[in-house]
Design a protein around this nucleic acid. Structure first.
Length: 743
RNA sequence: GGGCGUUUAGCUCAGUGGUAGAGCGUUUCAUUGACAUUGAAAAGGUCGGAGGUCCAAUUCCUCCAACGCCCACCA
C-alpha cells in the first residue's frame, strides 16, 4: 500500500490545505505566462512534464479591479470563480495565459465610505486640508487593497501578481491625464457651464448614470403669475424665473405670446416674458410653465432655444441647497426673509405668503412624479449651473455601436446587446468632473483672467493674459474615466510586450449592472485612444442574491461574507456553488445550505481517492491488465463526457459543464463504476484486480483534471498526494502540478 | 412614457421541436464492507393562461395575466 494513503484516512479539511496549495502554485511561477514551461520539440521539459505543451496562442482576462474600500463580497467571489475557471482551463489547454489583477481607487464610492468613517470619528472631510485627507484615504485604500489581495488568494485566483495594477499607480495617473489632454485637443472634451446633478450632501456633481429615479408624491401648486395661472412643484425657485412658457399652438395663451406680463415675485414686482416652446405640454396643469433655467433641466433647454428673448439664468439656490437671494437682490429687504432658507422650508413659507396675497389658487396633493435622487444617499438632487468638464460622447459612441453590431465584440448573454444599443444611441454628454479630492486630479489650469490651460505641469504664465495667478482645477475625474481605460492602461500601453501580446483581451467578465458605467466606456475609450477594441467578448454575470432574492447590501444587513463561508466549507465549495448556479445574466442565489452541499461533494471526492488508492497492489506494476467490455465502455463514456465538458466550457456554458462533471464524478463514477468494480477488486485473480484498479485510476485521474478549473484546491491536493497519478515513465516528477496538466 | 426579462417538482433553478431534469426537502429501506458530509429506491409537475404554426410545442409565433428590472428632462 503506498504511503500517501495515510493522508486520506483523515477527513478532508480545506482549511488545512488551501493556503499551502496556493503557495505551491504561486511559488511555481505558473500564474505568470512568461514562466509557463515551454515544451521542447519532443519529449518532456524539465519542470512541466511531458504532457504539457505551451501553444503559441495567448489568452488574457483582465480582472475587473475591485473597489479597494472594503472587503470582498460575493460578487467578487463570483467573478473569481468564473474568471479563474476560464483561466485555468485555457492554461491547461496550453495557452499562454494571463489573468491580470488590479484594484480600483473607486473615487466617489470610496469617498462616501470614508466620509462615513470620518463621521463616526466625529470628523468631516470639509474640515481637513486636501493633502492630508488624500493621504488618509490613500492609506485606508491601500490597506483595503492588501486585504482584498489576500482574499483573492484565499479564493484561489490564479492571477499573475507580478503584474498587478492599481488605478492610482503613477503611470496610470499620467496616462489617464494624457487621454484627457488628447481628447481636449481633439475637441472631445469641453468645459461648459451646464446644469449638473448636484448632491447637496456629498457636495459634488454626478453623471446621469449616478442619478436614481423614484416616484414621489409632491404637492403641485397652482399659482397666479399676473393674469396667467400655472402649476409648479418648485415654488422656491420662483425667484429665479426668467420667463413663462406656453405651447405655440395653445389658444388659451395666444394673445400673451411675446408679451411681457407683470408679476408679483413676493420681493417686488417685475415683468417677465411669455414665450412659446414646443416642449410645453398644453394638457399638463394649465398649459403654462414658469421657466427657471438655473434649476431645471427642461427650463435650461428652453432657455437655450430662447437666449435672445429672455434674460440669463438666475441662480437662487446655493450648493448647500439654500436660497441665496441676497446675491441677486442684495438691496431688497423682503428678500432677506427668504435668504438662507432650505428648499422645503422656503416652499412652505412661500406658499403661505402667496396664499396671503391671493396668488395661490389650489394645491394638488396627489401629484406623482419621478424625483431625481443621489444613488448613494437618496437625497433629492439639486440641478445647479456649474462649469464642468464634459466628454462629447456622440463621436465615441458611433464606432462603439458598430463593433458590437458587426460582431467584433460579442456580448453574452445576447439580450444585453439591445440594452447596450439603446443606451449608446441615446447617449448624453458625460460629466467627468467630481468635486471630491479622492481621485486623479484633472490636468487643467485656470487663470484668474478666465484662461484655461490643459496640461500636466503648472504653466509658468497664462497664455491669454500672461499673468501667473494660476490654479489647478481642484476637481478629480469621475472614477470611470480611468477605469474606462483599464484594458490598455493595465497592459502598459503603448510600448509594452504585454500590450502587444494580450490586447485586445479575450474576455471581459463582469456584472451586468456596470454595462454602461464601465463596459460601454471601455469600448468607447479603447477605440478612441488605441484604435482597437479592448476585448473580443463581454461575459456578463448576474448579481448575487441571498436566499430571499435580495441584493446583498450592507444597509440591509444580509451580506454573507464569502471568505467566512470559505473558511468553514472551503473555497472550492464556494466556487462550485456559485458556478453551478450562475447562468449568464441571471442572478444567482447563494445560501449556506448550497455551499454545504458542495463541501459534501469535496468530501466525496476525498473518499474516492482513498477508495481508489486502497485497492492498489505493488504487483499490479508487472501486470498487463485485461479490460472487460464494461471497462471499455466506461473509458469510452469518459471520452464522451470529456468532450461535452470541453464543448460547454468553450461555449461559456460553465454551469452546464459544472453539472456534468459533478454528476459524472458522484453519480456515474462513484455510484456506478466504483460500486460495480468492488467484486473484481476483491477477486482472487490478480489480473482482474489489476484491470479494475487501472480503470478506476484512469477515470479518476481524468476526472480530477476535468474538475480542476472548478475546484482547484482539492483536485491539486489529491494530485500532489498521489504520486501514482503523476508518474512519468515510472519516475515520479514531484514538481509537476495538476494546474499545468494537459486538459 | 419607452424597452427588457421572468413564470418548469414543496423550495432554488437548469434544459429541450419528439411522451420532463438537477440540488435541497419529503417518504421507505440499507450500516463493523472507501465515504452517514453515505448508499438503494419512491412520491411529487396537464413546463402561468388563451390561441396559432407544425406529423409533433414546455421549447417557435401572437395575445393576455402576474411579478421583476432597466432607461427616460413633462413643470
Amino acid at each position: 500500500m503506498p504511503k500517501p494513503l495515510d493522508k486520506f484516512n483523515n477527513p478532508y479539511n480545506p482549511k488545512e490545505i488551501e493556503d499551502k496549495i496556493y503557495r505551491l502554485w504561486e511559488e511555481s511561477g505558473y500564474f505568470n505566462p512568461d514562466k509557463l514551461p515551454i515544451s521542447s520539440a519532443k519529449g518532456g521539459s524539465a519542470s512541466g512534464g511531458k504532457n504539457y505543451k505551451l501553444k503559441s496562442k495567448n489568452f488574457c482576462v483582465i480582472m475587473p479591479p475591485p473597489n479597494a474600500n472594503g472587503a470582498l463580497h460575493f460578487g467578487h467571489a463570483l467573478f473569481v470563480a468564473l474568471e479563474d475557471l476560464m483561466i485555468r482551463y485555457q492554461r491547461m489547454r496550453g495557452k499562454k495565459t494571463l489573468w491580470l489583477p488590479g484594484a480600483d481607487h473607486a473615487g466617489f464610492e470610496t469617498q462616501t465610505v470614508f466620509d462615513k468613517k470620518l463621521e463616526k470619528e466625529g470628523r468631516n472631510r470639509f474640515q481637513i486640508p486636501r493633502d492630508e485627507l488624500y493621504r488618509e484615504i490613500l492609506e485606508f485604500t491601500l490597506s483595503n487593497k492588501k486585504t482584498m489581495e489576500s482574499q483573492l488568494r484565499k479564493l484561489g485566483a490564479s492571477c499573475d501578481w507580478s503584474r498587478k495594477k492599481f488605478t492610482l499607480d503613477e503611470d496610470i495617473i499620467s496616462k489617464t491625464q494624457d487621454t484627457f489632454i488628447q481628447m481636449y485637443k481633439d475637441g472631445l472634451v469641453y468645459r461648459g457651464k451646464r446644469l449638473v446633478n448636484w448632491c447637496v450632501k456629498h457636495q459634488t456633481g454626478l453623471s446621469d448614470l449616478e442619478v436614481k429615479h423614484e416616484e414621489k408624491t409632491t404637492p403641485l401648486y397652482y399659482i397666479k403669475y399676473g393674469p396667467i395661472i400655472l402649476a409648479t412643484v418648485r415654488l422656491e425657485t420662483k425667484f429665479g424665473d426668467t420667463a413663462i412658457a406656453v405651447h405655440p399652438k395653445d389658444k388659451k395663451y395666444k394673445n400673451f405670446i411675446g408679451k411681457e406680463i407683470e408679476i408679483d415675485t413676493l420681493i417686488g414686482k417685475t415683468k417677465i416674458k411669455v414665450i412659446a416652446d414646443e416642449a410645453v405640454d398644453p394638457d399638463f396643469g394649465t398649459g403654462a410653465v414658469k421657466i427657471t433655467p438655473a434649476h431645471d433641466f427642461n427650463d435650461f433647454e428652453i432657455w437655450q432655444r430662447h437666449k435672445n428673448e429672455i434674460p440669463h439664468p438666475i441662480e437662487v439656490i446655493d450648493k448647500f441647497g439654500k436660497l441665496n437671494l441676497l446675491e441677486h437682490f442684495s438691496e431688497n429687504e423682503e428678500a432677506k426673509k427668504y435668504h438662507g432658507l432650505k428648499i422645503l422650508e422656503a416652499r412652505k413659507i412661500i406658499a403661505e405668503e402667496m396664499e396671503k396675497r391671493g396668488l395661490l389658487i389650489k394645491i394638488d396633493h396627489n401629484y406623482k412624479h419621478n424625483a431625481a435622487l443621489c444613488y448613494k444617499c437618496s437625497n433629492n438632487l439639486e440641478p445647479r449651473l456649474m462649469s464642468q468638464w464634459f466628454v462629447k460622447t456622440g463621436p465615441l459612441a458611433k464606432p462603439a455601436i458598430e463593433v458590437v453590431k458587426n460582431g467584433k465584440i460579442k456580448i453574452i448573454p445576447e439580450k444585453f446587446k439591445k440594452v447596450y444599443f439603446h443606451w449608446m444611441k441615446n447617449i448624453r454628454d458625460w460629466n467627468i468632473s467630481r468635486q471630491i479630492i479622492w481621485g486623479i486630479q484633472i490636468p487643467a489650469w485656470f487663470c484668474e483672467c478666465g484662461g484655461i490651460i490643459v496640461q500636466k505641469e503648472k504653466p509658468k504664465k497664462c497664455v491669454k493674459c500672461s499673468g501667473n495667478k494660476i490654479e489647478q482645477d481642484p476637481d478629480v475625474f469621475d472614477t470611470w474615466f480611468s477605469s474606462g481605460q483599464w484594458p490598455y492602461l493595465a497592459l502598459d500601453y503603448p510600448n509594452s510586450k504585454d500590450y502587444k501580446n494580450f490586447y485586445p483581451t479575450d474576455v471581459m467578465e463582469t456584472g451586468w449592472d456596470i454595462l454602461f458605467f464601465w463596459v460601454a466606456r471601455m469600448i468607447m475609450l479603447g477605440i478612441y485612444r488605441v484604435g482597437k477594441i479592448p476585448f473580443k467578448m463581454v461575459y456578463l454575470h448576474g448579481l448575487v442574491r441571498d436566499k430571499d432574492r435580495q441584493k446583498m447590501s450592507k444597509s440591509k444587513g444580509n451580506v454573507v461574507d464569502p471568505l467566512g463561508v470559505a473558511e468553514i466549507y472551503g473555497a472550492d465549495a464556494v466556487r462550485m456553488a456559485l458556478i453551478m448556479d450562475s447562468t449568464p445574466g441571471n442572478d444567482p442565489i447563494i445560501s449556506e445550505d448550497k455551499i454545504r452541499g458542495y463541501r459534501n461533494f469535496a468530501t466525496k471526492i476525498w473518499n474516492i481517492s482513498r477508495f481508489v488508492l486502497m485497492n492498489y497492489d505493488q504487483k499490479f506494476e508487472k501486470i498487463k491488465p485485461q479490460f472487460t467490455k464494461e471497462d471499455k465502455k466506461n473509458l469510452k463514456d469518459l471520452i464522451t463526457i470529456h468532450k461535452k465538458i470541453t464543448k460547454d466550457i468553450e461555449g461559456l456554458k460553465f454551469h452546464i459543464a459544472a453539472h456534468s462533471i459533478y454528476h459524472y464524478i458522484w453519480h456515474t463514477f462513484a455510484d456506478k463504476i466504483l460500486e460495480n468494480s468492488k467484486p473484481r477488486l476483491r477477486s482472487e485473480n490478480i489480473i482482474e484486480r489489476a484491470a479494475a484498479f487501472k480503470v478506476n485510476l484512469e477515470i479518476f485521474s481524468a476526472a480530477l483534471k476535468l474538475l480542476h478549473p472548478f475546484m482547484p484546491f482539492i483536485t491539486e491536493e489529491i494530485w500532489q498526494n498521489l504520486p501514482i497519478l503523476r508518474r512519468d515513465s515510472g519516475q515520479v516528477k514531484n514538481k509537476k502540478m495538476l494546474m499545468i496538466e494537459k486538459w
